[in-house]
Design a protein around this nucleic acid. Structure first.
Lengths: 336, 336
DNA sequence: ATGAAAGCGCTAACAA
DNA sequence: TTGTTAGCGCTTTCAT
């Protein structure tokens, strides 16, 4: 059977609490005993039961991580970094996948509650469950999106949009399209359009393609993008596009090839997220500083876990993304 | 503070074990009491403490998943499927990343031990820790690789190699190169070469590029691939390549472009793994049946967890992969 | 410096 | 059908 502190105590002729003291580095243990016990523990390979420890200490050393979309490599990188910093701090991650499904998401959060996780990280969170999660009173951080009244760490999409526009304008582009989320709500577009206006350029709504998150499969997206260009190919196609994320940016590039349009020779493309795919495919993209993002999120979480008294002050950290110039954008001559 | 069974007991005037009975669906509870208690629990939102339950039951309802390479989308899909089937069975996953580093891997496994996980899934496992993991006596399954003496679920790389060769030979290719792991140890190559020989084709070692797993960064790999083609471009380049995984397949395609070689017009490429990237990039690839793989792995794990007596019989499940014809392979005319 | 005793929140054996 | 009691493996008083 599995060894317990009691077994070690009996075998070494010491009381069980003393074993606990030794393992937890209490200063009040005779060195001689300590050495003897530690040697024995080493020899038999005893390992303390973290479940029992958790119960007693009222702390599971577990962080619940709920990811809304595993096919987004950007979220995987977040997971990777979070796991790293968590481990460094003796925490482990219970990871769930919500598939952007609020019901599933809530089940995941309930699992976190049941398992007494010390903190929760949501990447990101649907608005349906926001209030309910806060109500669990478990230290919580939302990652990649800023949510009112909740500690959140994200990236300024407005700044990203501005940088994309600036870059393309600097390269001489004046007629620039946008492929991404709902224009009204999408900060990427808002920043992008702000910069356009600042330069006296009016955005042409014909050059906007709305790719909603609900268009899930690659096939569906391909069709929508294809139809968009088919419709617009006869008119005056923009010389550049700002695309809401790298995957769709790639799909766009591929579909443009079907129309014998080359990137960047004929059309420039700026992506968003700078996931691995952008690196591999050499797509000019807006990079989210993932490591900073996760480190800060973890820091906030730790602060909340460690502080007995609940701090009411909400942290909203918004980092600036960085434009990475690669091979899908190109200077153009302006023909007046 | 957090509610406990005791609180519920006091509030409803029932003994605490009866609350436990009700929650665990014991038949011996008066319906009236049951309803009253359940209503109260619903009202106050009480949730049983899984940590306490775990301690008492000697079962954490936790599976430890250790992934060796998170940048491999194929492994992410495994995680996704495993999480799904685990949740369906009331298990959650503690996920760690070993980065193919045996020391890190062992730390991860120790964390699983400390946390009393009910089972461990390794995707896959370095040979360094294999014996030690088995020694923990925790139910264990290795995924994506068959290991001697240990329950493992994987795919027949030999069959994959055969299928790749068959497909290319059927398309008329006779001079076929191989880019992948060490030829001596790589079943993909062995199957591939078997099929070649069966068709009277001798593999030309000049057309072999060894991309070891240790060549980690994209940049390093790019250089090696580039040099390979630079060296071989003058000679008689094969009309097709079988490439050990999709990511490297893509990189190869990209680098061939640098030499003005088009896929599949000039050179056909068959990848391996059929990860998302192959789908997006329309690479002909050997698909691993991920869902079957994970389901079977979980089943084996459950069987081992449920069976009190340790079954000595080792399961080695090897599924056949499936060739998916896409856009990177093409029939060629044979010039005699 | 160390042991005895209590208790974290549950489940299970036993009695009633 | 239900309550009493004990105990899972730890940590933490409280004595000594």
């Amino acid at each position: 059977m599995k060894l317990t502190m009691n077994d070690i105590a009996k075998a070494t002729g010491v009381s069980q609490p003393t074993i606990s003291r030794i393992l937890n580095g209490s200063p009040n243990v005779k060195a001689e005993k300590k050495i003897k016990v530690l040697e024995y523990i080493e020899k038999v390979g005893y390992r303390p039961n973290l479940i029992a420890k958790s119960l007693k200490n009222n702390s599971s050393y577990l962080i619940g991580l709920c990811i809304s979309d595993l096919s987004n490599p950007y979220f995987i990188e977040i997971f990777e970094n979070l796991e790293k910093v968590a481990r460094k701090n003796n925490y482990s991650l219970i990871v769930h996948n919500s598939k952007k499904n609020p019901i599933l998401e809530w089940e995941n959060i309930m699992d976190f509650v049941d398992r007494q996780v010390d903190g929760i990280v949501l990447v990101p969170c649907s608005n349906f469950n926001l209030d309910k999660v806060v109500n669990t009173k478990i230290p919580l951080v939302i990652l990649t999106q800023i949510k009112k009244g909740i500690d959140s760490v994200g990236v300024s999409h407005i700044s990203g949009g501005i940088q994309a526009a600036k870059h393309l304008i600097n390269l001489g582009h004046r007629n620039i399209g946008y492929i991404g989320g709902d224009i009204e709500a999408d900060d990427k577009f808002i920043g992008f359009n702000m910069e356009l206006e600042k330069n006296g350029i009016e955005f042409n709504m014909n050059n906007y393609l709305c790719i909603s998150d609900y268009l899930y499969t690659i096939k569906e997206r391909d069709k929508v993008i294809h139809d968009f260009f088919e419709k617009n190919i006869k008119g005056k196609l923009p010389s550049a596009f700002f695309v809401g994320n790298d995957v769709i940016a790639y799909e766009t590039i591929k579909i443009l090839e079907d129309f014998d349009l080359k990137v960047p020779e004929d059309i420039s493309i700026v992506g968003f997220d700078d996931t691995l795919i952008a690196g591999v495919l050499k797509i000019t993209s807006i990079k989210q500083p993932i490591e900073d993002l996760t480190n800060i999120a973890f820091e906030i979480l730790m602060k909340k876990i460690k502080t007995e008294i609940l701090v009411e002050e909400v942290e909203h950290i918004e980092l600036d993304p960085i434009l990475l110039k690669r091979k899908t954008t190109k200077k153009i001559e302006i023909f007046y």
